[in-house]
Computed example of a mutant assay.
Amino acid sequence: MASFANAWAMISKLGGDGEFIAEKKFVPFCDRTIVKDPYRTGDLMFGEIKKEIKVVPSEVEISTPRINKVRATYIMRRRDIENLKNLFIARRGIDYYVSGFTVTCAYIWTCWLRAEAAEEERTEYFSCIADCRSRLNPPLPASFFGNCVVGCRFAKSRNGVLVGGEGFVIAAELIGEAIRESVNDEEWILREEFWLSEFKEADPRRVVAVAGYPRMDLYGADFGWGKAEKVEFVSIDGGNSMSLCRCRDSEGDIEVGLAMPRAQMEAFAAIFADGLRSL
């Protein structure tokens, strides 16, 4: 999505595609035949999608449903991310690698659950996707234009564990392990049955998912009138999702978008700020 937006912006700003084409690294690679599909995942996924498609009669008026939520954007500063990494390393050991993405997601997830105040015996799930172009054999070029993102295994634990004193560290460990196990398992990447089984086993009301990625520079898409004032992910309104993208005006910071009922958002804001101050 980010590559498409930036390509579209570049062509629009320059008034043509000459310079875009001259920069070989920008030109999308569209040859799908290089993707090996031994388990016929493409056909199986297409079949699943067709089941979900609902035909709406043209005479039916389509209206936007009212969503009882408010939106807010929180900034995870680079120093906060480093402090969270250091906290994790202090508890799990210096040899245990943890990424900025992992600690950001773990912190937002645990703050979310504390603000929600759900039953402690419930099982909570965290879902994210991974770019698997470099994980295939042979690897796909970085300019490959197609869907090569794969749903990772769910990170899951009991609510009471995640809202407890060690909740952030446990969440970061679970998310990190789920990502590593998924992207290093070629059969997982290629087999659609594995991904679907995760969703079928989980309670969708207890799944927190991620839209976007911190490395996505959507603010860099300049159509000729400068950076966007604000990037919003519309998809987070409809479910339990957070959005992540590179911050507009500061390198290394992350914008986190959330949509929640007002009371939960107010509780989240206090928990989010207090947690970072205590680091």
Rank of each mutant, 00 (worst) to 15 (best):
E52A: 15
I53A: 08
I53G: 05
I53Y: 06
K54F: 12
K54W: 08
V55G: 07
P57L: 04
P57E: 07
S58K: 13
S58N: 14
E59S: 14
V60A: 12
V60G: 06
E61C: 14
S63Y: 10
T64A: 14
P65S: 09
P65G: 08
N68V: 11
K69E: 07
K69R: 15
K69N: 09
K69P: 00
V70R: 06
A72I: 04
T73G: 07
T73I: 14
R77K: 12
R78L: 11
R79Y: 11
R79D: 13
D80H: 09
D80W: 03
I81L: 07
N83H: 11
N86M: 12
I89Q: 11
I89L: 13
I89C: 12
I89S: 14
A90N: 12
A90M: 08
A90C: 08
R91L: 09
R91N: 13
G93P: 00
Y96V: 14
V98T: 03
V98S: 00
G100R: 02
G100W: 00
F101W: 06
T102W: 00
V103Q: 00
V103I: 03
Y107I: 03
I108V: 15
W109A: 01
T110V: 15
T110L: 00
C111Y: 00
C111L: 03
C111P: 02
R114C: 06
R114L: 07
A117E: 10
A117Y: 07
A117I: 09
A118Y: 09
A118M: 13
E121A: 12
E121R: 14
E121W: 10
E124R: 15
E124G: 05
Y125M: 05
Y125L: 02
Y125F: 14
F126T: 02
F126D: 02
S127G: 09
C128G: 06
I129V: 14
D131G: 03
D131I: 04
C132N: 09
C132K: 01
R133G: 06
R133I: 09
L136M: 15
P138V: 07
P138S: 10
P139W: 07
P139Q: 08
L140M: 08
L140E: 03
A142M: 13
S143H: 06
S143F: 03
F144K: 01
F145S: 14
F145E: 12
N147L: 10
V149A: 12
V149Y: 11
F154P: 00
F154K: 00
F154H: 04
F154S: 01
A155V: 07
N159W: 07
N159C: 13
N159E: 15
N159R: 15
G160Y: 03
V163L: 04
V163C: 03
G164K: 01
G165W: 04
E166M: 15
G167K: 02
G167D: 02
G167I: 00
V169Q: 04
A171G: 03
A171W: 01
E173K: 07
E173I: 01
L174T: 02
I175K: 02
I175D: 00
G176K: 02
G176H: 01
G176S: 12
E177W: 06
E181A: 12
E181V: 10
S182N: 05
V183F: 04
V183T: 10
N184L: 11
D185R: 00
D185N: 15
E187P: 08
W188G: 07
W188I: 09
E193V: 10
F194S: 10
W195C: 08
W195M: 11
L196E: 11
S197P: 05
